[in-house]
């Protein structure tokens, strides 16, 4: 038994040596520029709607998020977003457009399984956890804030 675990350990060491490492610098550069670029577009939309529609700062922020989600969903539908993601990695996963991508891609994929169990149920396979942990942690924060206040 002990010899077996030792063998496994030695094997995993060998695998580590032979398997290539991710290109950290290249990946991070892509993530930085694409993530930065998406944020900059967000800023541009924010400034534009704030000025043109005479919105308050908070309203403009919310409007920007709506537009960005729409764009992310559309680019996913058109089959463009995954091509950006292949290079950009976190650069296109972390922005809110990536959240839209994580909703549309499974929903589209499972259309053959029907509009209830396919599209609607699968929509949240990836986005569901984000909502669950985001909302739950915000409730915990609210609760602590309420008790301390």
């Amino acid at each position: 038994m002990k010899r077996q675990t030792e063998n496994k350990k030695r094997y995993q060491q060998l695998v580590k040596e032979i398997s290539p490492k991710p290109h950290y610098i290249k990946n991070c550069t892509w993530a930085f520029f694409v993530g930065g670029f998406i944020s900059m577009i967000g800023q541009f939309i924010h400034n534009s709607v704030e000025r043109m529609l005479n919105l308050s700062h908070l309203e403009a922020t919310n409007a920007t998020i709506l537009i960005m989600i729409f764009v992310g969903a559309l680019l996913t539908g058109l089959g463009i977003y995954d091509r950006i993601g292949k290079r950009a990695g976190a650069g296109s996963i972390v922005p809110i457009t990536g959240f839209a991508n994580s909703i549309v891609s499974p929903a589209m994929e499972f259309k053959r399984e029907g509009y209830i169990f396919g599209v609607a149920a699968r929509m949240f396979t990836l986005a569901g956890p984000v909502l669950v942990y985001g909302i739950t942690s915000s409730v915990l924060v609210g609760l602590i804030y309420y008790l301390l206040k």
Partner: peptide, 17 residues
Amino acid sequence: ERQFRFPLELGNQRPLT
């Protein structure tokens, strides 16, 4: 891909291995 990994249009990166 849809059974074992991710939806086709998900913008994820595939590792080198």
